[in-house]
Structure formats: structure tokens, C-alpha cells
């Protein structure tokens, strides 16, 4: 697996569409994932889900590694164009949520949810970009939630309240709590990155465990260097 970083490459030289992953804040031990893609201007842009209704597009940053995806040139160009459209169609960002079920970009590149309170994390955002163009990378049905998922999801809910403007008595918050209690699978950024860069998708957790660990190690090592 080839990792690219600011130490050996220029994000402006990406091959149209690739995965970007990093640990933006060393103290938080939390990875963030998105997509580097070639925009209509020819510049590389970073498409990602940063937080609750934050802008989806920004410039590449040194704190991220990037990895190629196993798509042919035509599909990469199509995906880059689709990313440009998603950025334009969702200028105010989209909801951040641990519940991605029923969400999609299939409706015109504009974020769509069947449930009023569903949304995406950075990882499920990347998954849905692929899924919406009939290139699923994760076998969602065989991706079960594990007890430790709840710890992270609880933290996310606290962050949504503290920084996302979500009220604790709001329907949005209560919906998240209920789903959390029911058990919602977590998709870690490194696992989604591994699924995106591994051939023969969609993948189950066991398919990509080694690759996921390798990406995590690389992201941590990179965050210590930057």
C-alpha cells in the first residue's frame, strides 16, 4: 500500500480521486477521513464531513495522508465530478449523526435522509459517496456493532451538544440517544479508508483488518511528524 504525504508528494498531483486520512489532533486520538479530488478549476480539494452543518469542502492540509483507490481512470473522473457536485449541492453542510441508515447522496448529489434525524460521520460520509454511485466499499449488513462503539458514540453526542448547537431535549438528540441504546454500528475512519483502497469491495470487517491497522499506524506516525 502506498501512502502519500506532504513530505514526499504534492496533493495537487493526485490522480483525480483518492482517500485522505489523518489524525488532525494528536491529543484526541481520533482519525478523520475525507476525499481529495480534482475540482473543476483543476485544484485538488478536500471533500469531507467535518461536523454538524459545516462546509463540506476545503483545501488539502498537511496533516492528512492520501491513498489511491482501485478505480479505473474513467470512474475516478466520474467520482471527482460527482464530488464537485456534492460540494455545490450542499453548501451549508449536512447533519452530523451516528445514524446513517436511510441517508444517501443518490438524490441529485444533495444529501437526503429518509429519517429526519439521520446524518453522517466523516466515515459514513465517505461510504455514502461511494455507495451513491453504485460502488459500495463496505458490506454494511455484515458490519455489526460492538459494545465499545457506544463509548465513542456517547462522546460524539456530548460534542454535538457542546459545539454543534444541539439541545439535549431536542428531538434530534433524543433520536440519537435512542439509536445508541438500540445499538448502532460504528465505522472507523481507518476501516473505511482500508475498504476504499482495497480491491474487490464491498468488504466485511475481517477482510480489511490488517489494512485498517496499517493505515492507523501510518496516520499516527504522520501526525507525530507533522
Amino acid at each position: 500500500m502506498d501512502f502519500y504525504s506532504c513530505f514526499d508528494s504534492d496533493p495537487q498531483d493526485i490522480d483525480l480521486f483518492c482517500i485522505a486520512i489523518g489524525r488532525p489532533d494528536r491529543s484526541r486520538k481520533q482519525q478523520h477521513i475525507g476525499i481529495y479530488y480534482t475540482s473543476a478549476t483543476g485544484d485538488t480539494k478536500f471533500l469531507h464531513q467535518p461536523f454538524h452543518y459545516h462546509a463540506l469542502e476545503s483545501d488539502p492540509e498537511d496533516k492528512y495522508l492520501w491513498l489511491d483507490v482501485p478505480l479505473d481512470a474513467d470512474n475516478k473522473m466520474h467520482m471527482a465530478t460527482f464530488c464537485a457536485m456534492v460540494a455545490e449541492e450542499n453548501p451549508k453542510g449536512i447533519a452530523y449523526s451516528i445514524c446513517h441508515k436511510g441517508t444517501s447522496f443518490t438524490k441529485t448529489g444533495k444529501f437526503h435522509t429518509e429519517s429526519q434525524f439521520a446524518g453522517l460521520t466523516c466515515a459514513t460520509f465517505v461510504m455514502q459517496i461511494f455507495e451513491s454511485q453504485v460502488l459500495p466499499i463496505i458490506d454494511v449488513k455484515n458490519w455489526k456493532h460492538i459494545p465499545s462503539d457506544k463509548d465513542w458514540q456517547n462522546q460524539i453526542l456530548q460534542v454535538l451538544v457542546k459545539y454543534g448547537g444541539v439541545e439535549k431535549d431536542s428531538d434530534y438528540y433524543l433520536f440519537q440517544k435512542k439509536r445508541l441504546a438500540d445499538g448502532v454500528a460504528r465505522f472507523k475512519p481507518e476501516a473505511v479508508a482500508a475498504a476504499a483502497v482495497s480491491p474487490d469491495a464491498p468488504h466485511s470487517p475481517s477482510d480489511i483488518l490488517d489494512c485498517s491497522n496499517e493505515i492507523l499506524e501510518a496516520a499516527i506516525a504522520h501526525s507525530n511528524k507533522v
Binding site: 480534482t38 475540482s39 473543476a40 478549476t41 483543476g42 473522473m77 466520474h78 471527482a80 465530478t81 460527482f82 464537485a84 457536485m85 448529489g109
Partner: peptide, 8 residues
């Protein structure tokens, strides 16, 4: 991307 985007 530039030429495709308007049609998409």
C-alpha cells in the same frame, strides 16, 4: 470535471 460538471 470542468466540462462534465454543468451537464451532471
Amino acid at each position: 470535471v470542468k466540462s462534465l460538471l454543468p451537464y451532471y
